[in-house]
Amino acid sequence: MIRFLPLCILFAMPAPADTVVPTRTIRAQSVIVDTDVTLSAAELPNGYTRIADVVGQEARVALYPGRPIRVDDIGPPAIVTRNQLVVINFSSNGLLISTEGRALERGAVGDRVRIMNLSSRATLFGQVRPDGTIQVKQ
């Protein structure tokens, strides 16, 4: 039984995994392409292990070469930028109201952003839709 103890310890240790790291400095709000990243032999609990998961995403913070990319460091690319004119939609019980507004924050599809209704100057919150409009919910 003592002879099997070293084998149990050997198999209980996790195998090292590859982690995605930048090959160059990537500025915040830049979209990551496949030449920007590579795999490095390191293990990080909140890091990416596949390049395909990172390519096409937008850097939320500056990413430096050799440092692992963490889950919170990147996200979907923003389709609404700050100060952009957007269409605001509100719907309730069959009533649809559309008006023009100004985005006060950047946002990707599904993000909750602050917007200003240009006709009333009221500040609202809404969700970014895939077509770039903002859906306001009550």
Rank of each mutant, 00 (worst) to 15 (best):
M1I: 08
R3I: 15
L5D: 12
L7I: 09
L7Y: 08
C8K: 07
I9M: 13
I9Q: 15
L10G: 02
L10Q: 03
A12S: 13
A12G: 05
P14N: 10
P14T: 01
P14H: 03
P14Y: 12
P16L: 09
P16K: 10
P16G: 06
A17M: 13
T19M: 08
V20H: 01
V20G: 03
V20K: 04
V21T: 03
P22A: 06
T23Q: 04
R24F: 05
T25S: 04
T25Q: 04
I26K: 01
I26S: 02
R27T: 02
Q29L: 03
Q29G: 00
S30Q: 14
S30T: 13
S30E: 15
V31Q: 14
V31H: 04
I32S: 01
I32T: 01
V33M: 02
D34T: 04
D36R: 01
V37Y: 01
T38Y: 06
L39H: 00
A42C: 04
E43N: 05
L44D: 11
P45T: 12
P45L: 12
G47N: 04
Y48S: 14
Y48Q: 13
T49Q: 02
A52I: 03
A52E: 05
D53A: 03
D53W: 00
V55H: 00
Q57W: 00
Q57G: 00
R60E: 03
V61Q: 15
A62D: 15
L63V: 09
L63S: 12
Y64A: 01
Y64L: 08
P65S: 02
P65E: 05
P65Y: 07
G66E: 05
G66K: 04
R67L: 14
P68I: 04
P68T: 02
I69A: 01
I69E: 08
R70N: 09
R70Y: 04
D73M: 08
D73E: 03
D73G: 05
I74M: 01
I74Q: 02
P77F: 00
A78K: 05
A78M: 06
I79H: 02
T81I: 09
T81S: 05
N83H: 10
Q84A: 04
Q84T: 02
L85W: 06
L85M: 07
V87M: 11
I88D: 05
I88Y: 03
I88W: 06
N89D: 13
F90R: 15
S91N: 14
S91I: 11
S91F: 11
S91V: 14
S91A: 12
G94D: 08
G94H: 13
I97G: 07
I97S: 10
I97L: 15
S98M: 12
T99I: 04
E100W: 07
G101V: 14
G101E: 10
G101K: 15
A103E: 09
A103T: 02
E105H: 14
E105P: 15
R106S: 02
R106L: 03
R106K: 09
G107I: 12
A108F: 01
A108H: 14
V109Y: 01
G110I: 12
D111F: 00
D111L: 00
R112A: 12
R114V: 10
N117Y: 11
S120D: 10
S120T: 14
R121V: 07
A122F: 12
A122C: 08
A122I: 10
F125T: 14
V128Q: 11
R129Q: 07
D131E: 15
G132E: 07
G132W: 07
G132V: 00
I134M: 11
V136N: 15
